[in-house]
Lab assay of single mutants.
Amino acid sequence: WEITFERNGKRITVRTTDHRLLELFEKLWRNGADERELERLAEEINR
């Protein structure tokens, strides 16, 4: 799966075969987690 999240013109794409990681990322994104931390998390998930 691949999903791109966008907020205030900032886009972060997450790619993984584990839908649970996408759900976790989406919850953090929707709850306003720090964008720098989300970028780092996305990099780890995308590996």
Rank of each mutant, 00 (worst) to 15 (best):
R40D: 11
T17G: 10
E26H: 08
L21S: 07
W29E: 02
L24P: 01
G32F: 07
R7E: 02
E26P: 00
K10T: 13
R11Q: 13
T4C: 06
R40T: 12
G32L: 05
R20G: 11
V14I: 15
R7C: 05
T13V: 12
W29H: 04
E2D: 07
T17P: 04
E44N: 04
G9Q: 03
G32K: 05
L41G: 00
D34N: 12
R7I: 15
D34S: 14
R36Y: 15
E43Y: 08
V14Y: 03
L28I: 09
L21C: 06
R40I: 13
R36T: 14
K27M: 14
V14L: 14
L28N: 05
W1R: 09
T4Y: 05
A33K: 04
R47M: 14
L21Y: 08
E6I: 12
E6H: 07
R36Q: 14
R15G: 03
N46P: 01
I3S: 07
R47Q: 15
I45G: 01
R20E: 11
R30K: 14
R40Y: 09
I45L: 06
E43M: 08
R20I: 11
K27Q: 13
T4P: 01
D34Y: 07
H19T: 11
I3E: 05
I12Q: 01
R36D: 15
L28D: 01
L22F: 11
R7S: 12
G9C: 04
W1A: 08
E2I: 11
R15S: 08
I3V: 15
T4M: 06
E44V: 09
R11D: 05
A42N: 02
G32S: 05
E26M: 15
A42V: 09
R11I: 13
T13Y: 05
N8V: 02
R11T: 13
E35I: 15
T17K: 12
L38F: 04
G9I: 00
E2V: 09
D34L: 15
R36A: 15
F25L: 04
R40L: 14
R36E: 15
V14S: 00
I45M: 07
R20D: 11
I45N: 01
R20T: 12
D18A: 06
L22Y: 05
E26S: 08
G32W: 04
E37C: 10
G32C: 03
E2N: 05
R20Q: 12
E23G: 07
N31R: 05
H19Q: 14
I12R: 00
D34E: 08
T4S: 09
N31D: 15
R36S: 15
N31V: 06
E2F: 09
N31E: 15
E39Y: 06
E43C: 03
A42E: 04
A33S: 07
A33Y: 10
E35F: 15
T13I: 07
L38T: 01
E44L: 13
L28M: 13
G32V: 03
N46G: 03
A33L: 08
L38W: 06
E23A: 14
T17L: 09
L21Q: 11
N8F: 03
L28P: 00
E2R: 03
R40M: 14
T13S: 06
T13E: 04
L38D: 00
R47D: 10
E43G: 06
T17C: 11
K27L: 13
A42K: 02
I3A: 10
K27T: 15
L22M: 11
V14Q: 00
N46V: 06
V14N: 00
A33D: 04
A42I: 10
R11K: 14
L41Y: 07
E2T: 08
A33C: 08
E35H: 13
E23T: 10
A33H: 10
E6F: 08
W29Y: 10
F25Y: 02
F5L: 11
E39V: 12
W1V: 11
E26I: 15
L38R: 01
E44R: 10
G9N: 08
L41C: 05
I3G: 04
R36N: 14
G9V: 00
T17W: 10
L41S: 01
N8C: 05
T4R: 03
L22A: 05
L22R: 05
E2C: 08
L28V: 09
L22S: 02
E43R: 06
E44S: 10
R7P: 01
F5R: 04
E44I: 13
R7D: 02
L28C: 07
T4A: 06
L22D: 01
L21E: 05
K10W: 12
K10F: 15
L24Y: 12
I45T: 01
L38K: 00
I45P: 01
W29Q: 03
G32A: 04
A33P: 02
N31K: 09
E26D: 08
R30Y: 15
D34C: 03
R7H: 08
R20N: 12
T13W: 02
R20C: 01
R15C: 04
G9A: 03
H19G: 09
L28R: 09
W1M: 10
E23R: 10
E37I: 11
D34R: 02
R47E: 12
R20W: 09
N8D: 11
I3K: 15
